[in-house]
């Protein structure tokens, strides 16, 4: 564990807390893509199946359980409790266009052809693109609430911090994991446009609005 990894995990946790609080306090999930949230649930469920087979540390176990549990809680809030506020007219991204190619890729490019390893690889590939329905929703509505922007910024920062963690681990521990690194780079690149808007608009007190 190094500082970048810790900050990355905390940023990830912060993103989830911001999202749950936003939904809970405003009693609304407007502006949030349920499709992305479903994909994140698939990501955590398939990646953390190793909870059943391997034990890394109490920290890892707790975080994994928190990520799985909160992703299902988010889906419950969006599709059951605050269903009436869900923006389904704008949340039209076809998730099978992400699920199927990433699954095929995981079958083809993985470290080991076992069920757990292919599912782990699938979760890494899927996570790298899971935010696309959310970004698609923002681009359709042309704007995002500030709180949604903070959520997206924290969520994007998490993988960017992991990139620094991987550089650190490569230099210090000679450890590297190509599948995660390449996917992490892709994931972070997808956020770049949003990061730019966040820094130039939201941090200056303006609403995140896309040019017409």
């Amino acid at each position: 564990m190094n500082i970048f990894r810790l900050l990355g995990d905390l940023s990830h946790l912060l993103a989830i807390i911001i999202l749950l609080l936003k939904i809970w306090k405003s009693r609304s999930c407007a502006g949030i893509s349920g499709k992305s949230q479903i994909l994140f649930s698939v990501v955590y469920t398939t990646r953390y199946l190793d909870l059943l087979t391997t034990h890394v540390s109490p920290y890892n176990t707790v975080m994994k359980l928190v990520f799985i549990f909160t992703s299902y809680a988010t889906i419950y809030l969006m599709y059951v409790k605050f269903k009436a506020t869900y923006d389904h007219n704008h949340d039209t991204f076809r998730i099978e266009f992400l699920l199927i190619p990433t699954f095929i890729l995981a079958l083809l490019i993985n470290h080991e052809f076992t069920v757990l390893e292919v599912l782990w690889t699938f979760s890494i590939y899927l996570e790298s693109v899971a935010i696309l329905p959310q970004l698609f929703l923002v681009s359709k509505t042309r704007e995002a609430e500030s709180i949604t922007s903070h959520y997206l910024f924290a969520l994007g920062s998490y993988r960017a911090l992991y990139l620094l963690n991987w550089v650190y681990r490569y230099v210090v521990e000679s450890h590297y994991e190509l599948i995660a690194i390449i996917s992490g780079v892709v994931q972070t690149i997808l956020y770049c446009d949003f990061f730019y808007l966040y820094i130039t608009k939201v941090l200056k007190g303006k609403k995140l609005q896309l040019p017409a």
Binding site: R5, D9, H12, R47, D50, T54, V56, N60, M63, K64, F67, H111, E112, F113, E117, W120, Y162, N165, E177, A180
Partner: peptide
Amino acid sequence: AAPVEEHDEL
């Protein structure tokens, strides 16, 4: 296949 290291990250 080469043995896979345990995934120690989240």
